[in-house]
Design a protein around this nucleic acid. Structure first.
Lengths: 346, 346
DNA sequence: TCCGCTCGTCGAAGCGCTTCGACGGCGCCG
DNA sequence: CGGCGCCGTCGAAGCGCTTCGACGAGCGGA
């Protein structure tokens, strides 16, 4: 055993690997990065030394020398009215896809605000930024432009110029729901919306759903009654009762945490689904599938959106051009909660 | 304007700050770290240069030189049967407290497995590790010991020797729930548990709750019927019906996603809460408070656990000794869902 | 046979920061 | 009034990696 460097940290460094494999440090680096051709023999020798020594490159050193941290920031909302499971699905999809691109994910919460973004970006801790829960007029958007780091928004602000955004096409989703109900014969449709605070903040998806619903309704010449709705069971019950009182026979529920309570409220009010009232949900699929009856729904493809966002970000990091906005088309899944009004089978 | 270094990255470096303030680079560093005394005059000059230039230290360079990344890893579960809102609360609490200690949070999902932990730790990307959703016999625990990085577990494995763990004292929580119901006069108590997969995995909290419930029951000489329960509305309904059929008058629900469906099922079965059946939940407080009726509950203090975990990790990073296990005492909040059996007021 | 390539490898110069040892200047104690 | 110690500051040596230019060896074409 030849005496080596006194490896203070305990971890082997690239120097140890090079010495062990009998090559230059730069050669090891090129084996790892593949940025220059290396003979098969050398490569194998280096790789086995790496495995043998249990070498892992030092992330900081790499970031310093290469100006790439291989980390992306994910900024999550923490606010009231957010849809926790959806957010979680996004997050896990993002982490998984990022890993597939050899990147890690740094978690930020939006309550540290712009200062946090600035710190992260300027400190070269991350190469790119993923921003969730974007508002129509979001304070972080100008900052993002200023920082000049590649970024992708999940959600749509009012002005998308120069940005990259991904989201479900909530507008068309709203339309599709109404379309489905209208075709079944419903003439008065209710939208059980997001909490009022969400509309007030100008969160894109809520507004877009509403506009889609409205458009679909006017196209079909049916009425639409839309009302925001808080998350508490009490408020959901009141809102549902209110909508029914106003003659609604088809219900579009876009607040996933309201789905369960809404069904409970209908049961309590003695209305059968779908015989008396039809329900379409815009929510993650498992929710719709686990409810009883199983819900006709437009699933929010959180996972796919997360994946897309990462893919787009990676493209930007690689300097490739990407489209400004990517809207995923809604797909309506018909299950057991919708039927023609008045109990006729669909 | 004197010509400076050709700052390739666009960001000012510590050299720029030093030059602008007319001091040595090391002085700037000491101003920032406070590791040596600096005169007030110099400090102010340096600080204002920093602000003026918009300087942010390069995280990688800092990590390289100081052997501290100021980042902690948070390993989240992604599996079935996890309690999404609780996990989310943990995560946000962790991020917030970590920032308070000048650390950022790297998000890992447990599905990358041990390899991910190893990569992260060996690559010096993180200084410490927070592990959630620990199983009684968790494969990652030995790895954690081997890696030699400070870590804190959220949840309890079977053998805690040499580890640092934080959790709610689910055992006592179960006990407290039964105690409350027994004192009200209930003689037959049901535990609507976590999904079967969770027990099978050997997830600590589920087992501990069960043992606490059992102990409380035997102390009071009351019967307990315990059954796992899936998350779907259908299964919850069946399980509830089953428990009632077996003569249960008091229900302990620990699966937060089952709370809503369970109440709905009771309503459907024509049982009033709390007149006919009493319900105690072990779940995050907002859930219990938003249900209708408002639920008597033992809140899962996700936020506090997250905070504690970070605090402990920081202590370990600083080389301070910390206790092996920290169990937060359960607090029972009495609301409107419990009463003496048979409709008598409590 | 010789020139000029390409291929595979090496050495060294940083990347931006922390930290250690050194060194004046000043106040204090004797 | 002299020496000692402390305070505030500086310079330089890395931390572990990437990357650029250089260079020897082998090969084909003229």
């Amino acid at each position: 055993m030849t005496a080596g460097t006194p490896r203070l940290s305990g971890q082997p460094t690239i120097v140890d690997v090079a010495r062990h494999a009998g090559v230059a440090v730069s050669t090891v680096s090129y084996v790892l990065s593949g940025k220059r051709t290396i003979s098969a023999g050398t490569r194998d020798r280096v790789l086995s030394s790496i495995r043998l020594l249990g070498y892992h490159p030092h992330a900081g050193a790499r970031a310093l020398a290469s100006r790439r941290a291989n980390v992306v920031a994910l900024v999550l909302p923490l606010r009231s009215g957010i849809q926790v499971p959806v957010v979680m699905q996004f997050a896990t999809a993002v982490v998984t896809s990022a890993r597939r691109h050899d990147h890690d994910v740094l978690l930020l919460t939006s309550d540290e605000g712009p200062a946090g973004l600035r710190r992260i970006a300027a400190g070269a801790l991350v190469d790119g930024i993923l921003l969730m829960d974007v508002e129509l007029d979001d304070a972080r958007v100008p900052l993002l432009r200023e920082l000049g780091r590649p970024s992708v928004l999940i959600g749509l602000p009012a002005d998308t110029t120069g940005l990259t955004c991904v989201d479900l096409d909530f507008d068309r989703a709203g339309d599709v729901c109404v379309d489905h109900l209208a075709r079944l014969g419903h003439r008065r449709i209710g939208l059980l919306g997001a909490p009022a605070a969400v509309y007030r903040r100008g969160t894109g998806f809520a507004h877009r759903t509403l506009s889609g619903v409205t458009r679909g309704a006017s196209r079909h010449g049916v009425d639409v009654v839309s009302t925001p709705c808080e998350e508490s069971a009490t408020d959901v019950r009141r809102t549902v009762a209110d909508l029914l009182a106003r003659g609604v026979t088809g219900l579009v529920v876009q607040n996933e945490s309201a789905v369960g309570p809404a069904l409970a409220a209908l049961a309590e009010l003695g209305r059968r689904v779908p015989d008396d009232v039809s329900v379409v949900a815009i929510c993650p699929d498992p929710f719709a599938a686990q409810a009883s009856p199983m819900l006709t729904s437009v699933p929010v493809p959180a996972e796919e959106i997360g994946r897309q966002a990462v893919t787009l970000l990676m493209a930007k990091l690689a300097g490739e051009p990407v489209p400004e906005t990517t809207l995923l088309p809604p797909r309506l899944t018909v299950r057991d909660s919708t039927a023609a009004p008045g109990g006729a089978p669909r």
